[in-house]
Each structure stands twice: as C-alpha cells, then as structure tokens.
C-alpha cells in the first residue's frame, strides 16, 4: 500500500481552504492541491493526478458528489477514493454520502489538528 501524499482539496470557502492547507501541510506534511470550484478541479484532475480527493459537499455550480461522479466517469481506471466534508451533520445526509461511495464523511467544524490523522485512518481502511 502506497503512502498517502498528494491530496486534491475542493471547497468554495477560501478561509476553510487556508485552514486546511496550514493543518494538512504544516501538521501532517501532505502535498495539497486546492481548488475553489468543482469545474476547476475537474479540469486539473489529470495534471494533478491526486491519490485522494477531499471534497466539500455544498458548492455552487458543481457539488462535491457531482464532482466525484464526473471524476469516476472520466477516470474510472484510477478509482481515486474521495472523502466528503459537510456542515450538514445529519445522519441521513451522511448515509447518503456513504451510499454515493464516500470513503469517509468528516463533519464541519473539523479539528485541524486531527484532520490529517482522520484522513490517514480512512486511507488505510481503503
């Protein structure tokens, strides 16, 4: 099993991108490629070739689940796993996301100090 290094992070909230970047690069030493829209992320997917995607759910334009569907359709062979982050913490919402094939669902607000280990745990049970 290869070690997780390169993560594509997509969220429309710039502040959250900033916090996550500090947390995941400074605390956990990941290589983070961030995009603020689903469309931009989809365009760059091939170039970045991430090992894992960290996706916000509610985004204008293309939602997280839509982006994950598009990636799977275009790059089916890669079988890139994805983790959703959502501020809607209801059980029913989480269940839907798992049903859509999510490796993990992390609820917001997340703890930046333990975000990296949450992602690693999910990566290891892949």
């Amino acid at each position: 099993m290869s070690e997780l290094k390169k993560i594509m992070h997509v969220d429309d909230d710039e502040d959250i991108l900033e916090i996550a970047k500090m947390a995941l690069e400074m605390v956990d030493g990941f290589e983070l490629h961030q995009f603020n829209s689903g469309a931009a992320a989809l365009d760059a997917f091939e170039t970045v070739a991430p090992q894992l995607m960290l996706l916000d759910v509610m985004m204008p334009g293309m939602t997280g689940p839509e982006l994950s569907r598009n990636v799977r359709e275009r790059h089916a062979a890669l079988n890139t796993p994805f983790i959703f982050m959502t501020a809607k913490a209801e059980q029913s919402v989480c269940q839907e996301l798992y049903a859509a094939g999510a490796l993990e669902v992390i609820t917001k607000p997340f703890d930046p100090m333990s975000l990296g280990s949450q992602i690693r745990d999910a990566w290891s049970k892949r």
């Binding site: 959250i16 916090i19 996550a20």
Partner: peptide
C-alpha cells in the same frame, strides 16, 4: 449550515 461554515474557520484558526 450557514453558521457552521464560518464556525469551522473560526474554530480552526483558533485551534491552529
């Protein structure tokens, strides 16, 4: 949901 999103940034920044 709208309150949780800014709280994520506030709490995250303070935690860091």
């Amino acid at each position: 949901h709208e309150l949780r999103t800014p709280l994520t940034s506030i709490k995250g920044a303070l935690r860091l």
